[in-house]
Design a protein around this nucleic acid. Structure first.
Lengths: 180, 180
DNA sequence: CATCTTGTTCAGTCTTGACAAAACAAACCG
DNA sequence: CGGTTTGTTTTGTCAAGACTGAACAAGATG
């Protein structure tokens, strides 16, 4: 999704771009790398994770080429990964009238969580299907119980996620948590 | 962990080994593959996932070489992946007096879930650390709020997992859910 | 129009990791 | 002891995918 922003904002931000307070800067570096690693665990490219980290730390939308510069990564990678994250609903592309360049900001709505919940739902379905097959043919009771446990677990987890989403959504002023 | 089993059990089981009811067999095949895929998403080798699936469906411990045969995979792979899962606490190696061979069964205690919860805790810590660094140096309020949202989210998720574990543990007779 | 800017796509390189075959180790058996 | 069974470790191959530079497309701009 592409969002239009009213104010050009005099290109100065309290984010990870402007004032290089060295202590904070180092913490930002660590945080960005941590997000890179964390997202890699979720099978996303490391650069995508770093992008998310950087954008979480940026109060203002960040320009395309600044992303490449700050992460020391090719523009090609920025293009690929921003589009990926955009499609996943994790970040937004922001355009401004009279400015040909693209900016990006984190999506304050937690988009990824729904995806996680869906994954658990799918596993719940796998277990459920297997359980039904066994019940129809009188399979081992132990195994049926195990599968029931699996189904319960995954559905509880998915429910819990959905509830959390709902709670966070009502959470603050209306926008909440750059959740990933 | 290696567990010793009392009964040799006359090598006959209602599991995926003995009675080849074709309908159930096909369902088992699907379930095992689904587990393979699901665990691949969690960054485990596909074979490890299939092993988990097979063992969930097996009421009795399964012999090492039968695992290789059933999954049509080299003994080397079985060795590597069983050890991996064993270290993670997902399966148990079972030995029997007078039998030199190794057997494996699923761990009824959900071992992996703790690992998942830990992962979320780690992310919570990342966000927390970044937030502290910002607070010390008066960072952007928006960003601090985002980080607080992250911290809340991850800790809620980890808590929820722990609670679920506790609930399932008290759940049935004492052993519960071959959770993965 | 020629040229610059900005972002995308393509082709190639490089890394990572899964898997298997073979060599190996250890325990048992005769 | 030599030979067998059982599992492990090592070595090599292969595939997937992340990342890059270069070519490309589409506007702007002089």
């Amino acid at each position: 999704m592409t969002v239009s922003e009213p104010t050009p904002a005099p290109e100065r931000a309290a984010g990870p771009s402007a004032p290089p307070d060295l202590g904070v800067r180092a913490a930002e570096e660590r945080f960005i790398e941590a997000m890179g690693l964390a997202h890699e665990e979720d099978r996303l490219p490391r650069i995508a994770g770093r992008l998310v980290g950087l954008l979480i730390l940026s109060p203002e939308p960040v320009r395309f080429d600044l992303l490449a510069e700050r992460l020391r990564v090719s523009r090609a990678s920025i293009s690929t990964n921003t589009r990926l994250l955009e499609n996943m609903g994790v970040i937004h592309r922001v355009t401004r009238p009279g400015d040909r360049r693209d900016y990006f900001r984190i999506n304050e709505e937690p988009g990824l969580l729904l995806r996680i919940a869906d994954r658990y739902r799918a596993r719940q379905a796998d277990a459920e299907e297997m359980k039904q097959a066994l019940l129809a043919k009188a399979g081992s009771a132990v195994v049926v119980e195990r599968l029931e446990g699996l189904v319960r677990f995954y559905s509880a987890l998915a429910d819990s996620l959905h509830r959390m989403l709902a709670a966070m959504d009502g959470g603050r002023d209306a926008s909440r948590s750059g959740a990933t």
